[in-house]
């Protein structure tokens, strides 16, 4: 009996002592309320504020149980990682296409059932989303943020190709791959969230892996290239690929790219193929948006099976 009492007392004092160790975030960061999301209806802003702002903005409200060590470390890490992936505090500094992109990103986080984190809603039931909340945001985007193709007049095609140019490596050290236009198309997508039209190319290793069903994981040597063009209105009512926007690559090499989920991530933008990204770790942005596909080797595309019709 006495021993049991001592043990309990010991544990209790440990827990109390532990409270002295706290994550920096708890003391250093003052939570600043984010002004309501300008330009969106109040109900839409409300959903995001109640369900997402605790981890995706500087406006965090810590409940008493969130402040206890060790829970506070978990909460602090959620906020740190959460804000890295998506930060509504930047809203006011964004132009409207970026704001819309942020809302599409947020909505897809909800639709994939990843967000808000279920460990969080268990303790903060008010943050749980129901279908009504999700439909509210979906309908807002469909009615206000569907990109339209550029009109016929603004056609800037036919511009001569700049002759041989030197394309710089991306900040994570990946060299440009100029031959992807000879690869096969494993899919195409129309993106009405940002008004582009895309071809997803697979190199021969990718195409064969898809045909043999070896897609999870894809074998080393697999490369995907995704090109995006602005949608361009044609005279006949069809929409065509207009101005070139960017090309992105995912290059599979489990060892070499062990730190970035087995893939090398690269993007070059515009006619001048400027490498995208400011720091070596720019690719965390790619990974964070591809994360809902982590059970599918981080690949979104549901590819076409390309087979030789003569071989049965």
């Amino acid at each position: 009996m006495k021993l049991k009492f001592k043990i309990i007392l010991g544990i209790l004092s440990l827990v109390l002592l532990a409270q002295l160790i706290r994550p920096e975030e708890l003391s250093s960061v003052k939570t600043q309320p984010v002004k309501g999301l300008a330009g969106v209806p109040e109900e839409v802003a409300k959903v995001l504020e109640t369900s997402c702002f605790d981890c995706h903005s500087s406006q965090t409200s810590w409940r008493w149980f969130d402040r206890l060590t060790p829970a506070n470390f978990l909460v602090a890490s959620h906020i740190r990682d959460g804000r890295k992936a998506l930060d509504f505090s930047q809203w006011d500094s964004l132009a409207s296409p970026q704001r819309n992109a942020m809302l599409y990103f947020a909505l897809n986080g909800m639709l994939s059932k990843e967000m808000p984190l279920s460990s969080y809603t268990a303790l903060h039931p008010a943050a749980k989303l129901d279908q009504k909340d999700i439909d509210l945001i979906r309908n807002y985007l469909l009615n206000n943020a569907v990109s339209k193709p550029a009109s016929i007049e603004s056609n800037s095609m036919g511009a001569e190709k700049p002759s041989i140019m030197e394309v710089k490596k991306t900040p994570n050290g990946i060299a440009y791959l100029p031959n992807y236009r000879n690869w096969k198309a494993i899919s195409t997508t129309e993106r009405f969230d940002n008004g582009t039209i895309r071809i997803i190319f697979g190199n021969p290793i990718a195409v064969e892996a898809i045909h043999e069903g070896k897609t999870n994981p894809f074998p080393d040597g697999t490369i995907f290239a995704k090109t995006a063009w602005k949608q361009q209105q044609g005279k006949d009512g069809s929409v065509y690929a207009g101005q070139f926007v960017q090309v992105e690559f995912m290059i599979k090499d489990v060892k070499r790219y062990a730190g970035t989920k087995g893939w090398g991530w690269a993007r070059w933008k515009g006619e001048n193929l400027l490498p995208y990204g400011k720091t070596v770790k720019f690719d965390s942005e790619c990974i964070s948006c591809h994360r809902p596909e982590r059970d599918n080797d981080y690949v979104f595309t549901r590819p076409l099976d390309i087979r030789d019709l003569n071989k049965k």
Binding site: R181, T188, I197, I199, S238, V239, Y240, A241, D308
Partner: peptide, 14 residues
């Protein structure tokens, strides 16, 4: 099989 050929253009018919 056209899918084995080189993709050259894409279009949408809204």
């Amino acid at each position: 099989n056209p899918l084995e050929m080189t993709p050259m253009a894409v279009s949408l018919q809204p």
